[in-house]
Simulated scan of single mutants.
Amino acid sequence: MPHRSDRSPSSPSPALPSRDALAATLRAAGCVFAEDEADMILAAANGDPCAVEAMAARRAAGLPLELVVGWAEFGGRRIVVEPGVFVPRRRTEFLVEQALALAPDASVVVDLCCGSGAVGAALAAALGGVDLHAADIDPAAVRCARRNVESLGGHVHQGDLFDALPARLRGRVDILAANVPYVPSDEIALLPAEARDHEPRVALDGGTDGLDVLRRVAARAPAWLAPNGRLLIETSPHQTPGALTALTDAGLHAELAVCEDRPARVVIGTPGGAG
């Protein structure tokens, strides 16, 4: 009688789905830019059909694309993003552009509420050779930011706003970028599910009117800025008057920069009323 092996025949390897098939799956799940997302997933999977299947399933379940593939494009760079960390928004590139235009010779850069460290990394890459410090209160954000910042020679600190920074930076910061949380607490539930369900509340919730953290940053910024330093904070249209008031109340000269295309708004503070 022929001997039968105890081992089951090997199952055939699954085939790599075509771009069109993957895009159809994503579109059925509600992804508006299904073709572009399919390209990113296929590239991230590096030819592994099982990885494609797993990533497509996570995306269809509502996980942000950036967390599915593990990176976000920001300022011409790939920024590593991890689950539980705020995904950098492309509109925030406007804050980086304003900082570079106002302080092209900056040598000390601080990225407060840094999340993944995208803003600090973009600034350091553009300026070259800066003393870069990024800080966040969330341990997950700090771990992620280190992957993006330390390769540029930067330092990442954990703690509450300025309390996290080395004291030697007081009065020396040329660019103080603070992409603070500015969603009013009672509007968190109205956010898209990708943000509401997959990003930490601490990175979104700005208090009753969305300006709680902004006010705290503005109040302490003058002590940390260099004489010609700049504080830059992203805000929303309806919060702009309150944000500008917070800067002037702190003794800063306050102005507003607007980009209608993205859209984006950045309030800018300069110490001593200097323009």
Rank of each mutant, 00 (worst) to 15 (best):
L225C: 05
P181E: 04
R4W: 13
Q98V: 15
G62Q: 04
T240I: 05
V87W: 01
T25C: 15
P9N: 08
P166H: 04
I175A: 02
G251I: 08
A195I: 15
R172Q: 15
E37W: 01
S151I: 11
P263T: 06
A54C: 04
V142E: 06
A45R: 10
P166K: 05
L100M: 12
A124Y: 06
L225D: 00
A250P: 12
C31D: 15
F86Q: 01
V180Q: 02
Q239R: 03
G210N: 14
A51E: 09
G229M: 04
G128L: 03
G272N: 06
V213A: 06
V156N: 00
E150F: 01
L67P: 01
R196E: 11
S185R: 06
C113S: 06
P222Q: 01
A99Y: 09
A45L: 12
V149H: 00
A43F: 02
A125E: 11
G62H: 09
P83E: 09
A125P: 07
A38T: 11
A177D: 05
R143E: 10
P83I: 13
A106E: 08
E73M: 03
L161D: 01
A145G: 00
C31M: 09
L252R: 08
E97Y: 08
I41G: 09
H155K: 14
V96C: 07
P184W: 13
A106K: 11
L22P: 13
L112P: 04
T25E: 15
G159V: 13
R19K: 13
A38S: 15
V156Q: 00
D136N: 10
S185V: 00
A45P: 10
H198C: 11
E35N: 10
W71H: 07
L123A: 09
I79N: 03
